Simulated scan of single mutants.
Amino acid sequence: MSVLHNKISNAELKRKMMEETENRVTISFYCYFTIVDPKSFRDWLYKNLFALKVFGRIYIAHEGINAQISVPESNFEAMKQLLYSIEPLNGLRLNIAIDDDGKSFWVLRIKVRARIVADGIDDPSFSMQNKGKYVNAGQMNELLNDPNTIVVDMRNHYEYEVGHFVKALEVPSDTFRDQLPMAVDMLKGNEEKNIIMYCTGGIRCEKASAFMLHKGFNNVFHLEGGIINYARQVKEAGLESKFIGKNFVFDERLGERITEDIIAHCHHCGKPCDTHTNCKNDGCHLLFIQCKECATKYDGCCSIECKDTLHMPVERQKEIRKGIDKGQNIFNKSKTRLRPKLKDIAGS
């Protein structure tokens, strides 16, 4: 029987990946198209990508595919031709990572989901067929210079915090499904202005652009390929980057540097810093920003409580975290979840 699921421990897989000598390329892509049988498509894709030593995270749904992967350089063309053999994906843009050490993933996971991006849309009249106009890097810069333009960041706070386009509006919510109606409410009265939506790789802003048109906005655009593609085009064409700081990415790297600007701050001491990390306490794993000095001081933990727990015997740690629901701690809005802990630290 063909291998359709990983059966090796994460620790062993990560060790093997770190020992690899061939360079890997980190890629992201997505496509909205109809998949009649997501489970069969998932199994076929897993078998073929596994044979090419592809690692990464892929979601399959009736509405399409959303993928972040890494592939050995020698298998890149074969992987590309495999994807292009699927008619709706033929010629699909592949976003190649900018700041990449090839160590982004160490296992292949392909999951069938209800949606490739959770949107909460239950209106049967909504359609992805009517979506905003694509803009490239040059067009994005031109529109940003137009006073009749409003640019909207469709990412979460922890992404926006370390890097964003100049004058970009943040939609203050923990989830994309909540951001969609919030964006509509925030922009009421601006139905005739240029509305540009953007996100990391394009998948969220493409759906957001369709939703805005569905809600009566008339001049809606979305950044083709998101920040990843924008950064590449800016570099290749020698354009000014209107995106400043770091682009948060959902893999082991946790970020790609786009410009040298550091616009975020250490969540402990307030020093300029844009390095995301996960709390080392296995009962927490909170995502937050931490400078090198504070990482040393708190042993890579988000609080004194977690630091103390980290140094307890392993069995005691397991006992403490029994029944704990970490919820969205790993990828969450750090400013809302971490601040209470930091207040406790300051007062200790």
Score class of each variant (00 low, 15 high):
I320M: 07
T336K: 10
D146G: 04
M140R: 00
R57L: 08
D101E: 11
T296Y: 11
T336C: 03
V3K: 15
N95M: 12
E256I: 00
G225N: 02
N75F: 07
R257C: 02
F211A: 03
M212T: 02
Y46G: 05
K280Y: 13
G64T: 04
F76P: 14
Y298Q: 00
A114Y: 08
T259G: 09
C306Q: 02
Y298H: 07
W44Y: 15
F33A: 06
C301W: 03
K131G: 04
M182D: 11
A168N: 07
K16S: 12
M197S: 13
V135Y: 05
F55Y: 10
I86R: 05
T175F: 09
V71S: 04
D101S: 10
E240W: 01
W44H: 14
C306E: 02
Y32T: 07
K322F: 11
E22T: 12
V162I: 15
V234N: 02
A295L: 05
I195E: 01
P272K: 10
M312G: 00
G245Q: 02
I228K: 10
G225K: 03
K16F: 06
N278I: 00
C279A: 07
E305W: 10
I69A: 03
N145D: 14
I98V: 14
E293Q: 12
P38W: 08
V107R: 10
R15N: 09
L239E: 01
N90T: 07
I110K: 04
K39S: 13
V151L: 14
D123Q: 05
V220K: 02
G163P: 06
E224Q: 11
I69K: 03
N75K: 10
A237T: 00
S209P: 04
K326Y: 08
A264S: 13
H276N: 11
D122K: 12
N190C: 11
L83K: 02
R109F: 04
S40H: 13
E22V: 03
I345W: 13
I227D: 06
S9T: 15
G201V: 05
N332C: 13
E142F: 10
I195Y: 01
A78S: 14
A183C: 14
R321G: 00
L108R: 01
P181K: 06
L254F: 05
N95D: 15
D308K: 12
K322C: 01
K341L: 15
C273E: 11
C301H: 00
I58W: 03
E19H: 09
G245F: 06
I263S: 00
E73P: 11
R253S: 07
I196H: 04
G102D: 02
N281F: 14
I324S: 05
M154S: 04
I69W: 01
E142R: 12
V71G: 01
Q179L: 02
H276W: 13
I203R: 03
R232W: 09
F250G: 00
